[in-house]
Design a protein around this nucleic acid. Sequence first.
DNA 1: AATGATCGTTTCGTTAAACAGAACAGATGC
DNA 2: GCATCTGTTCTGTTTAACGAAACGATCATT
Lengths: 243, 243
Amino acid sequence: MDQKFDMDADKSQRGVAAVDRALSIIAALEAWSMPRNLSEISRATGLYKSTILRLLQSLQDAGYVIRVDESKYALGPTVMQLGLAYERANPLRHLFLPVMQRLVDAGLESPSFHIRQTAEERVCLFRLDSNHSTLDRVHAGDRLPMRRGAAGKVLLAFGEDHAEGEEMDQIRRDCFAASLGERDKFCAGVAAPVFTRRDRLMGALSLSGPKERFTPEDVERMKGPLQAAVRELTTEMGGTYPT
Amino acid sequence: MDQKFDMDADKSQRGVAAVDRALSIIAALEAWSMPRNLSEISRATGLYKSTILRLLQSLQDAGYVIRVDESKYALGPTVMQLGLAYERANPLRHLFLPVMQRLVDAGLESPSFHIRQTAEERVCLFRLDSNHSTLDRVHAGDRLPMRRGAAGKVLLAFGEDHAEGEEMDQIRRDCFAASLGERDKFCAGVAAPVFTRRDRLMGALSLSGPKERFTPEDVERMKGPLQAAVRELTTEMGGTYPT
DNA sequence: AATGATCGTTTCGTTAAACAGAACAGATGC
DNA sequence: GCATCTGTTCTGTTTAACGAAACGATCATT
């Protein structure tokens, strides 16, 4: 595989570089389905072998990585347990995924749910793929920009800072946003807000996919089911949807 | 909760301390089922808030942690995806767990499967709890000593360095080891080797629990089912069991 | 309403943690 | 047998990371 796991250069200034390196090793192991040796990890991550060995010591100690066949490394049982802990702690999955699945079953585009993470970024919490043969590439865990994409716009429009501007006003009136080719020129999406108690924004549910499936007719067709879904989720979250 | 997540002092010399710190934050979030704020994380891990913030930057960038309610932190979707990747990459679970579950259903003690990790340590890959009301505390991911515990002895006896000594010879003859109060004075266990192709040791399957349930009669009663289980697993792994 | 405690965030001087890179012995492939 | 690749170890150098304090905001108590 030729996917590189270099650390994102513009992010290395704000966290801890050694932690970034360690997590890039885990990401490389995750991408492979078989244990890999030191040199393969070095090629994939761009890290020196001595650096990798030091980092692997910590990852092995914590059970994130195990060493098998004396010289290969693989994901260890701690990642499984973290996954289970995430499921235990996150009952939202059991609420959101059925609603999202119904959107898929209705033949619409790929649903995702996003929340704001920082002033400039959102994170995708859940993502299902549509039944179409082509998809836009978004995964749970992805960090995406706030200022581009339908979901980002919804988060800006309904967030606490109540972003200003004609476009934001329109989104607030419609409880709906569309974005054609903003985040990525080949992709498009529509989004609507999910509220929780006290009229607070919880996040944005979106439908996204390749741009050619977002004609004005397509967008109009998706609006109803999407808004029905966010109304249902808002009710379940103890919120009331603005009329 | 009062569980501390301080880094293990004797391990901080060999990995990367910043990575150890970051993983201790994840461990703290895993132990809680609700999002927690900075001060709670600080109390639990013993780390300074400024240190935690820096580490959290990296963890958020990679999706291991998300920030919710503006000031609380929780496990993020990347840990779920790692858990799924681990399951995908580790078909052994689907082979081992049913066999281990049958040992539980037979009313025996808690089964675990261990592999060697370093010269001095083993790692528990899988663990099921018995149906008894008291258990020994072992979890998947735990690092345990090679020189103590029944599973450790089995790994030494059948490992490539073929550890010497009367006790090791006996274990090799019986394909079985028992350990009463070695790893922990209140616990005991029995273990047997699982082989794979070319007579190579794969790991050790053990049954363990509180010591008082390991009388000579108990040990004798567990030996048969345990050895039947490891024979079955060895056959499935393409190995042949020494007669 | 005032006050104290606790929170999240930012800053920066210091130091030792972490790195890069080389060297080496062993294994593998031709 | 030789070239290449591997895993492992070592160490001088540098800067990454830390600790600790300060600050403004929020919350709880009186």
